[in-house]
Amino acid sequence: MTDDIEYRDYAKGAQPPYLTPNYKSTKVRSPNKPQYKLPRTLTEATGPVFTQDDVPADEWDLSTSATGETALGQLMFMDGVITDEDGRPMANTLIEIWQANAAGRYAHAVDTRDAPLDPNFTGAGRIVTGEDGHYRFKTIRPGAYPVPNYENYWRPPHIHISLFGRSFMSRMITQCYFPGDPLNDECHILQGIPEAVARDRLVMKFDPSVGVNGHALGYRLDLVLRGRRATPMVG
């Protein structure tokens, strides 16, 4: 073993339960039976390996189209560090993000509501972290969008995030939100996380120091992936 990593169970209150009744479709998609214990084996201690060569360098910028045009909306940077549970930077982690445009519409065939598409915005980006675990995307602030099958219910502006980390155990997908938006308190998906502190960790911090003066806002979001050293370092 190059590195002996321990994967502890997720803390229950810090993760959403599969059944979240306010989020209607969980009622038919959450398993009825409890999950079985899985022995931690080499299968779980390994996972797909990525390098910075896997992703074209320009995919960190969602706000600029292939022809060099700027997307409509409020320009912003999303910036942070990905660490493990020891606070160690997670290198070589693939982070994929996607989001609606400034009008709250996805460039997706299934999203057919009557908000405009932006020809200069697809809303998908990828990077692989370097040794410092740092990531940075340039994008536009997404709009809120209404959800069919609910009464006057809107998803708050959010950005979807997919992360791999160092093994199958750390693979996860989440969403992040904007500070101070009143829709955050109404969101069945965000509010499905039992602990307030765990919800707060998905809300980005407004941070001008990661923005660019006169050009774009800055928001900061640090992410923690599961896994820590089995033997803590002494001293």
Binding site: P16, E85, H160, M172, R201, L202, V224, R226
Partner: peptide
Amino acid sequence: YIPTAGQTV
């Protein structure tokens, strides 16, 4: 450092 919560895809 507590692992970040998951959310639906």
